[in-house]
Write a protein that binds this DNA or RNA. Structure first.
Length: 267
DNA sequence: ATGGTTGGTAGCCAA
């Protein structure tokens, strides 16, 4: 059977009710991984999420910032919350879907890192580098009894030259600096991950999942970056059937600055 | 070189 998984940084779930309805209407994902929900668990809008067709919810949020969730049409087991660098900042949860011997799904939100790409001047960039390093160590450890893993999220790094509108110009812009890309690549290689989206969309082709709110005309300028990713474990590689970034979602009324990214697996 | 917009939540911080 087909299993479709979407990851989307919604930049406030409560502001994205229409957006989520649009996503479900167009894509009908079986599982939706969210980042930047910006809602504490007591205020999570479970009722309308369930009414959209996602009765199984795993959420971990806090006031104002961050927050991740997994919405599912399939039951979720082994619900887990992970904290990074001794902070409980609601950036990583996982759950297992009881298909194909268990598919462990992760929703991850890596720190954006602020504007200045110098860890001695910008503590948020230092935090991002530390996070990427720790994430890389974790990502290399494959756990027993969990044959399939799908890691999704706003990883806040655009690794390839074709993941940004200008490789040269963005070498000094947080999200595409050599140091970040190096740590990102190390995490990717350590886990023997497969980039499910680039498995479908060739690396030669430009692909973006985020466009700044600050551009007067995001579509015309088209200065995007691919910050949102779906990684799968090697055994799932032959099962990747389709992948796409829903570019049109950036043009919706009251959009997120990120668009949903979907991968379809045959499991 | 700077500022541009959005969101949360209370007069700025984070993205």
């Amino acid at each position: 059977m087909a299993l479709s998984i979407t990851t989307w940084n919604v930049n406030s779930l409560r502001k994205r009710r229409d957006g989520l309805e649009g996503l479900v209407r167009l894509v009908e994902p079986d599982v939706i991984c969210l980042q930047e929900t910006k809602v504490r668990d007591e205020e999570f809008p479970s009722e309308w999420v369930k009414a959209l067709g996602y009765p199984h919810i795993h959420a971990h949020g806090m006031p104002g910032y961050n927050g991740v969730a997994i919405l599912s049409r399939h039951p979720l087991a082994r619900l887990s919350v992970r904290s990074w660098l001794s902070k409980n900042d609601c950036r990583h949860i996982s759950a297992t879907i009881p298909l194909a011997g268990g598919i462990e799904i992760h929703s991850v939100y890596i720190p954006a890192g602020g504007d200045v790409p110098d860890p001695t001047k910008n503590p948020r960039f230092a935090h991002k580098l530390g996070f990427l390093e720790a994430f890389g160590k974790w990502s290399g450890v494959r756990r027993r009894g969990s044959p399939h893993v799908v890691l999704t999220g706003d990883l806040n790094v655009a690794p390839l030259p074709t993941d940004v509108w200008s490789h040269e110009k963005l070498l000094s812009v947080v999200s595409h600096t050599p140091r970040e890309v190096e740590l990102f690549d190390r995490a990717f290689k350590a886990g023997r991950w497969v980039d499910a989206v680039r498995h479908v969309v060739p690396a030669e082709e430009r692909l973006y999942t985020w466009w700044s709110y600050r551009a007067p005309d995001w579509a015309k300028a088209d200065k995007g970056r691919r910050l949102d990713h779906v990684w799968v474990t090697p055994a799932l590689k032959p099962q990747i059937k389709w992948a796409s970034a829903l570019r049109e979602a950036r043009g919706w009324k009251t959009p997120s600055d990120h668009v949903p990214v979907t991968v379809v697996l045959e499991v």
